[in-house]
Amino acid sequence: MSEESKLLPLGTVVYLREGTTKIMIIGQGPVFEDEGHDVYTDYMGIGYPDGFDPDEALFFNNEQIDKVVFKGYEDDESKRYNDVYNQWQQSTDVLKKQL
């Protein structure tokens, strides 16, 4: 069981710890296969301003974020998604990937 996460909204631009490139959040709670097991992270991001390249997508968690440069759009729907995400984290058998 994971503790509750406050997800940053889509479109948020961050620096990761020890990172030198801005990353834009384009996905929340992605589940993917890693070494034969399903895992998830809090976010999927892309280099900013480069844009999307499927071979360059980054997966990271709240703990890896060093600085928020720009906070993306947030409304009632995104707040509701955050609540659902926290409920899912508490009930899922999928492991959170530790990075």
Rank of each mutant, 00 (worst) to 15 (best):
V14F: 01
D93M: 13
D38K: 14
R80P: 00
R80G: 09
I65V: 05
E4N: 14
D76S: 15
K97P: 07
F32P: 00
D93Q: 15
Y85E: 03
K96Q: 15
D93I: 13
V68W: 05
L16M: 01
T41I: 07
L16I: 02
V13Y: 02
D93S: 14
G29A: 14
V31Y: 01
K97C: 07
Y48E: 08
K71R: 15
G45F: 10
E56R: 15
L7K: 03
Q90N: 12
E56H: 02
I26Y: 07
K22Y: 12
T41D: 04
D53L: 03
Y73V: 09
G29N: 07
Y73S: 03
P54S: 09
D55G: 02
K79I: 00
E77F: 05
D34N: 10
T21C: 06
I46T: 10
Q28L: 15
E63V: 05
E4S: 12
L10G: 09
R80C: 09
Y40P: 04
L7R: 04
D76K: 11
D83K: 04
D50M: 06
V84W: 07
F59D: 08
D42H: 11
L7A: 09
M44C: 13
K79W: 03
Q64H: 06
F70Q: 14
Q28F: 00
Y40V: 03
E56G: 04
E33H: 04
Y81T: 10
T21E: 15
K67D: 08
G19R: 00
V13R: 13
Q87G: 05
W88F: 11
Q98H: 09
D75A: 06
E4R: 10
V84S: 02
G29Q: 09
T92E: 04
